[in-house]
């Protein structure tokens, strides 16, 4: 039972970097876009475009470059699963 609880907790624990996003991205209606309701696919596509430079940005281009594809995927999955 302890093993199962630990596994559940590990599954829902935020992946590296994920909890930092909410330092800028909060409730809807801000000049900084809210991530609420964004799907995993949306977030992954945006982060990838920021990283490659395909999508221009003021700050997100600089931040997206600091995350590997796997890290970005994990963050997108975690953010996309939040309500």
């Amino acid at each position: 039972m302890i093993v199962i609880l630990a596994a559940v907790a590990a599954l829902t624990a935020p992946p590296p970097g994920a909890t930092a996003c909410s330092g800028c991205h909060g409730a809807p209606g801000s000049a900084l876009p809210s991530l609420r309701g964004k799907s995993e696919a949306d977030i992954l596509a945006a982060m990838t475009a920021f990283r490659t430079g395909a999508r221009p940005a003021t700050v997100m281009d600089r931040i997206a470059k600091g995350f590997s594809e796997d890290e970005t995927r994990a963050i997108a999955a975690w953010l996309g699963s939040r309500k």
């Binding site: 907790a9 590990a10 624990a13 970097g17 930092a20």
Partner: peptide, 21 residues
């Protein structure tokens, strides 16, 4: 907080990545 929660479960602190703006 994520690290402390893991340590309290008897697990190692997970890998860390941080951002500043």
């Amino acid at each position: 907080a994520t690290a402390v929660a893991a340590l309290l479960r008897g697990q190692p602190a997970p890998p860390v990545k941080l951002i500043n703006t």
